[in-house]
Design a protein around this nucleic acid. Structure first.
Lengths: 119, 119
DNA sequence: GTATGAACACACTGTTCATAA
DNA sequence: TTATGAACAGTGTGTTCATAC
């Protein structure tokens, strides 16, 4: 569950929602997921570093949302990657439902500030 | 200038915009400004503590946006308060213009997340 | 060079403590 | 009690370092 203190959603919770969604769609490992995020938010200048992605994946795993397994990736050179899959779809759904509320609340908060301070 | 790393606007920058606006309207001291904020955001459950307000006022003063003077407040009991006024209206205007962009960017970011993750 | 992970360091913010009238 | 301010502490996140292929 996100639930971020009282101000806006934290970057990590924001990232976690994307990770869950992308993994639901079949995306699977760290740097690949980072590339997805970069592509999605390039226009916003948002480029969370790889450590933030890994931390998020680790937490989602510890918290029971994801399953992690090590796989040898075929290519020009064999490379070992950590592949993630959804462990508990219902739990993931609940996480996202909470995140949706947090995102909507954030939109409301920012729009109110725009309304109150910029006539 | 706000300019908050790369994710969303920080709470302190968010508060600073309100402080500038309220002081422009004639509001003047710490706890009074905190009351204004509480009233505005009660429905969002947002209640920044007094230290955050004071920190913001101190920074705005150090950065040249506000002027601070100590005044004896008349009432049931005399009380010394720190009264703030706008020092440089043009500079304040520039701060708010930057904050406006940050707020709008935040709305865009959150709405994109809602769009991308919640079909 | 790609991929993963941990360690370190700093910035943001909430809680507590201190002082004054 | 109202008002102000500083000190302290926890957390979030960016940077760096380490390891493996």
């Amino acid at each position: 569950m996100p639930r971020e203190g009282t101000f806006l959603i934290k970057q990590k919770a924001f990232i976690k929602v994307y990770l869950l969604s992308q993994i639901e769609k079949g995306r699977s490992y760290g740097l690949q997921l980072q590339d997805d995020l970069y592509a999605a938010f390039r226009s916003f200048g948002l480029e969370p570093n790889h450590s933030e992605i890994y931390r998020s994946l680790h937490e989602l795993t510890e918290e029971g949302y994801l399953t992690r397994r090590k796989v040898r990736k075929e290519g020009a050179k064999y490379q070992e990657i950590a592949v993630y899959t959804i462990k508990d779809p219902e739990k993931a759904k609940a996480y996202k439902a909470q995140a949706k509320m947090d995102l909507e609340r954030g939109v409301g908060l920012l729009q109110k500030a725009l309304h109150d301070n910029f006539w």
